[in-house]
């Protein structure tokens, strides 16, 4: 799964730590999601989309391998 988390974070001028605190996870989790090592749950994806005020499928999109 691909994501635009890093770009969206840069637009909002948020650090990984800021975003992690806003959605109640660790900074490592945000880093792992950004690098595509970890696929977040629906709840976490919805929380992220709420922070960036964008629909989930604009931030996360399926890869050809998915």
């Amino acid at each position: 799964m691909q994501n635009r988390l890093k770009i969206e974070r840069a637009i909002k001028n948020l650090t990984q730590d800021d975003l992690a605190k806003l959605i109640g996870v660790s900074r490592q989790t945000i880093n792992s999601i950004e690098k595509g090592r970890y696929v977040p749950s629906t709840v976490l994806a919805l929380k992220i989309s709420k922070i960036f005020e964008k629909p989930v499928n604009e931030i996360f999109e399926l890869d050809n391998s998915d």
Binding site: V25, S26, Q28, T29, S32, Y38, S41, L44
Partner: peptide
């Protein structure tokens, strides 16, 4: 310190 869904996994 921070217990989230990734650490649970």
């Amino acid at each position: 310190k921070v217990e989230d869904e990734m650490s649970n996994l």
